[in-house]
Amino acid sequence: MNTHLTRDPFPTPEQAYANAPSILDEIGWTARTLAARQCFTKLDRVFYLRKAALLDRIALLDEPDTPGEVTETAVAAASTCSTWIGPTSSVTRATTSVSSTPAP
């Protein structure tokens, strides 16, 4: 008996973000986190993961066939984030799959 799953191993954006805080809440959290730190303070991995997920969710609001400025910003942020958490990050894969525009 073959036990290999034939489904896509990655969740849909709707599944991945089903229990996530609202986009507005995450924007607020990001702003509060940055406001509480001095300039050039090193931020932890959680900050960059949440910021990348936020930008991914915003990019998903763009029309899927016509990447816009929001998508390009999210892809760039995910590329930057991948230097902190590694290039195989699911955040990077999820964000770059939204756009046909290659990451810088």
Score class of each variant (00 low, 15 high):
17 Y>E: 12
17 Y>P: 04
17 Y>H: 15
17 Y>V: 05
17 Y>K: 04
18 A>R: 15
19 N>S: 14
20 A>C: 04
20 A>N: 11
20 A>R: 11
20 A>Y: 10
20 A>G: 05
21 P>W: 02
21 P>A: 02
21 P>I: 01
22 S>C: 05
22 S>I: 08
22 S>N: 08
22 S>W: 03
23 I>D: 08
23 I>V: 14
23 I>W: 02
23 I>T: 12
23 I>K: 07
24 L>K: 07
25 D>C: 07
25 D>E: 14
25 D>L: 03
25 D>K: 06
26 E>V: 00
26 E>Q: 12
26 E>W: 00
26 E>A: 01
27 I>N: 01
28 G>V: 06
29 W>H: 09
30 T>K: 03
30 T>E: 01
32 R>C: 08
32 R>L: 13
32 R>V: 05
32 R>N: 15
32 R>Q: 13
33 T>L: 00
33 T>P: 01
33 T>G: 00
33 T>C: 01
33 T>F: 06
34 L>W: 03
35 A>D: 14
37 R>I: 00
37 R>L: 02
37 R>H: 13
38 Q>E: 14
38 Q>G: 11
38 Q>T: 09
39 C>Q: 11
39 C>N: 12
39 C>E: 11
39 C>V: 08
40 F>M: 10
40 F>E: 12
40 F>W: 09
41 T>V: 05
41 T>H: 13
41 T>K: 06
42 K>A: 11
42 K>Q: 10
43 L>G: 09
44 D>I: 03
44 D>R: 02
45 R>W: 02
45 R>I: 10
45 R>P: 01
45 R>K: 09
46 V>F: 00
46 V>D: 07
47 F>A: 03
48 Y>H: 14
48 Y>I: 04
48 Y>E: 00
49 L>H: 08
49 L>E: 12
50 R>D: 12
50 R>P: 06
50 R>Q: 10
52 A>L: 02
52 A>W: 01
53 A>C: 08
53 A>L: 02
53 A>E: 15
54 L>G: 01
55 L>D: 07
55 L>E: 10
55 L>W: 06
56 D>K: 02
56 D>S: 08
57 R>N: 05
57 R>W: 05
58 I>K: 03
58 I>V: 15
58 I>D: 04
58 I>Y: 05
58 I>P: 05
59 A>M: 09
60 L>W: 15
60 L>C: 10
60 L>I: 09
61 L>W: 05
61 L>C: 09
62 D>Y: 13
62 D>P: 03
63 E>A: 14
63 E>Q: 13
65 D>Y: 12
65 D>Q: 12
65 D>N: 15
65 D>F: 05
66 T>Q: 13
66 T>R: 12
66 T>F: 07
67 P>S: 04
67 P>W: 06
67 P>M: 06
68 G>F: 08
68 G>Q: 07
68 G>H: 05
68 G>E: 06
69 E>Y: 12
70 V>F: 06
70 V>E: 03
71 T>K: 08
71 T>W: 01
71 T>S: 13
71 T>I: 00
72 E>V: 07
73 T>Q: 14
74 A>I: 09
74 A>E: 07
74 A>T: 08
75 V>D: 09
75 V>Q: 06
76 A>C: 10
76 A>R: 15
77 A>F: 07
77 A>Y: 15
78 A>R: 11
78 A>S: 14
79 S>G: 15
79 S>F: 07
79 S>L: 06
80 T>G: 15
80 T>V: 13
80 T>S: 15
